[in-house]
Design a protein around this nucleic acid. Structure first.
Lengths: 202, 202
DNA sequence: CCTACCGATCGGTAGG
DNA sequence: CCTACCGATCGGTAGG
């Protein structure tokens, strides 16, 4: 036992959050019942309501405390790299190594888009923007003979590269053996880098 | 009335498919009830089972007959363009103009990934691969001083550019007014083109 | 944090 | 293609 500062109530809350988080990722929001969550968390279904007002509020709490951005951003922050190429290559591989090749990581985000029509987006935006801004600034100020691309667009394209890698991977990964999977990330990174940097040698 | 070749049963089937399609896109699979679908289609709930064995089979039929790829691919096929740049710019704008700026188009695909864990992916792959192959070949054989990128990776990156545009748009679109939205597609296309082509002038 | 339970709604069937 | 209905399960509450 390392940390004992959590109250019992807080530990139970986290157990519920853990259970619900995994179930939402695995099968979506509507298909997950309070009874499934309770069983996985090891308590009675009614006890969940001591910690969350409703299923909806619980989902909102999970978004705010477990959104994939909260895993992605610390990794990006700790990525070394003296110039754009080093940073992007390092970030891409560290992200994929630590988050895994399967797109489950994005599922919570995708569920919010499809099952809630993105209704929490502005809430999340407000919460995350202060943490994202320094990263955008850092990305933009890296050396590398960058073409004339606005900082926000650059950040969006960088993020988009991961999303597209994961989602096309989900679409193809189960249907293809390896010919397209192998080194796909490296190719995506190459295309992004060539797309963003001014070519040094013709 | 243009076409009268459809039987009444077929027309009802299509009405059910239309209703379910729109509901699944708008709120996902599990959150959509057979009663909602029946009401929107104008028939009794039980009557749906004259056309589909189960809710699951109905979703499968919608995937096979209404998957976003079936809208995307004809647009790509009819896009003119003598070289890579013309083709990609034309394809990007025609797609977005005809499909709209909002990512609803991808929702059926995203629902399948999240709520069905991509279990229909290989089925869809089998059905679509014969139509996709010519497009990959065409894309790859376009003029444009292309860098050394395998055809499959090129096609995947091209597709990924749209996905990332739509999904990052869904994430940002509701929270931002215009500063990042304006010309975002053009920037994405530029990055892709620079990323894929050999630079002509330093 | 539990047992017991609520009304509502679910996917699907019987039978015509 | 409908009416009528099935058992099961849903999110949530009462009361302790």
């Amino acid at each position: 036992m390392i940390e004992e500062t959590q109250t019992k109530g807080e530990r139970t809350r986290q157990a519920v959050l853990d259970a619900a988080h995994r179930l939402f990722i695995g099968q979506g929001y509507a298909a997950t019942s309070m009874r499934q969550i309770a069983k996985k968390a090891g308590i009675a279904p009614a006890s969940i309501y001591n910690h969350f007002d409703s299923k909806d509020k619980m989902f909102e709490a999970i978004l705010l405390e477990r959104h994939p951005f909260l895993q992605i951003m610390p990794i990006l922050s700790s990525t070394q790299g003296r110039n754009m190429e080093e940073f992007v290559r390092g970030a891409a591989h560290t992200l994929v190594d630590q988050l895994g090749h399967y797109p489950d990581i994005l599922n919570l985000m995708l569920t919010e888009i499809v099952e809630f029509q993105g209704e929490h987006v502005s809430l999340l935006f407000q919460k995350f923007i202060p943490r994202v801004m320094p990263l955008i600034q850092r990305l933009y100020s890296l050396d590398g003979n960058m073409r004339d691309i606005p900082p926000f667009v650059l950040a969006r394209a960088f993020l988009g590269m991961f999303f597209s890698y994961y989602i096309t991977g989900a679409l193809l990964g189960q249907a293809m053996p390896a010919e397209m999977q192998a080194n796909a990330l490296d190719h995506f990174v190459d295309i992004f880098l060539h797309g963003v940097l001014v070519k040094e040698t013709a």
